[in-house]
Design a protein around this nucleic acid. Structure first.
Lengths: 253, 253
DNA sequence: AATGCGGTTCCATATTATGGAACTCTCGGG
DNA sequence: CCCGAGAGTTCCATAATATGGAACCGCATT
């Protein structure tokens, strides 16, 4: 990173980042240590940031994100923001696999897509944002079932394709496998020729809140499902790390 | 505000505030004008803020809130944040009236309290956070009904108190009155001796998303309902203005 | 009363931010 | 194809601004 006449702003920004990323009240002294600045400098900068409503002190005098952050959060849907944060991750997966990549979240007892990056192949999946399919026919749905992010279906399962899972027992077996592998797969279970792989994304408190998935023609996906699965788990974990509160240390994007 | 060795940070913070408060992409030139800084200075500061992930440029090169804001928003419930932003408003009402003040939002077909400031009187209302009551027996519920923030109840109305409204027609008449006055009143309709007044808070898109209310003993509240109503409307409007995107000009808190 | 801890204020210093001007890029006309 | 205008970035000499060590403050603990 360059340092061209913005030392003060850079330092102030670093303080903000520490507070926001940690997402729990941080004491003055901790900030001094963590940022490696002189006490006096830190004090002045923090005072300025507080005046600007970028930071705030809680009852105990520790620093937390200020009203400007609250204002932003009050005005914006968290799910859309998760999608926004996930974009670079999706893009990385898209670049690596060349396939269409999605991020999906549970809503009620169904699954909705909140972000998508398209394939570079001509034969790709279409725009799935907002389209609803029976969760047990999609890899993302299976992930959300498997990790308790979505209540299991009751009664008869829809069977839109010949290879769709037909019974709850079959589904349960598949979910157990997903839990073992860390990722879920569907092959020709929604449409013949369409396959998908997905891995779980965990939220602040550690439980699964979303599924990161890749979908495309079985010819390309199904044969590589293991490799794609591992990639997805890795990337989903790094996204989870972003959403989890940061304990220490840094790492840019 | 004082300027003790933090000019750069103050200016940078002002730029962030402009972008976040406007809540729509702002071009470089607009920022230069609005902040009244030299082009070169603005450019340098904005570049630093972008490096720090506090701001971001959209496809058209205009500035929007950056990933740190998205991260905060992804991690926090907007309703709780609205409650946080409302705190100073509630406090002001509490100071003016001396009574217990609440902010409530619709959730499903019921009403939940998201913030509360307590009375200084001994005889006050208790902690209502999370307690559920039939909406038509609370002033806040009536406000949310009246301004289409909550679906009207069906079938029989609960009548926990002697003076509770008993029919949908009665309720409708009361709601019409609330729409005319701009605020709603309940008197002894939930518990004998308990009265309340509430006014609507509007969100970003102009429709009602919350109700700001005061409650306390009928002896104090009911006799002053008109004056309290006007105060609530005024304060609720100022809260609405905060949540609405800011078109121009400034104003501190 | 004395000591230590968390934080703020002071002040001389020189490092860092500043803004005018020059420069680059892109787009729209003529 | 060239010219000009608008948007934005880079350069650089200048001095205004941020810096950090030390002194200071207030509060708890012993």
């Amino acid at each position: 990173m360059s340092a061209n006449g913005t030392q003060a702003v850079d330092r102030a920004a670093a303080l903000i980042a520490l507070v926001v990323q940690a997402d729990e009240p941080i004491s003055f002294t901790t900030l001094v240590d963590e940022a490696g600045l002189a006490k006096s400098t830190t004090s002045r900068l923090l005072a300025a940031l507080e005046r600007a409503h970028l930071l705030e002190r809680d009852a105990g005098g520790a620093y937390v994100a200020g009203p400007l952050f609250a204002l932003y959060a009050a005005r914006h849907d968290p799910w859309r923001e998760i999608g926004r944060l996930a974009r670079p991750t999706l893009q990385r997966v898209a670049d690596d696999t060349g396939e269409t990549v999605h991020l999906a979240i549970p809503r009620g007892d169904t699954v909705v897509q909140v972000a998508q990056v398209d394939t570079r192949y001509v034969l790709g999946t279409r725009d799935w944002m907002g389209v609803e399919v029976p969760p047990h026919t999609s890899a993302q749905g299976k992930v959300l079932y498997a990790f308790d992010a979505l209540p299991l279906p009751e009664g008869e399962l829809d069977t839109p394709a010949e290879r769709s899972l037909r019974t709850l027992a079959e589904l349960e077996r598949d979910l157990a496998k997903a839990r073992r592998n860390g990722y879920a797969v569907t092959r020709d279970e929604l449409e013949p020729g369409l396959s998908a792989v997905a891995a779980p994304v965990r939220g602040r408190d550690g439980n699964v809140i979303a599924a990161l998935g890749v979908s495309g023609p079985s010819a390309r996906i199904a044969t590589e499902s293991d490799q794609i699965g591992r990639l997805l788990v890795e990337q989903a974990d790094s996204l989870s790390a972003l959403l989890r509160r940061r304990t220490l240390k840094e790492g840019a994007a």
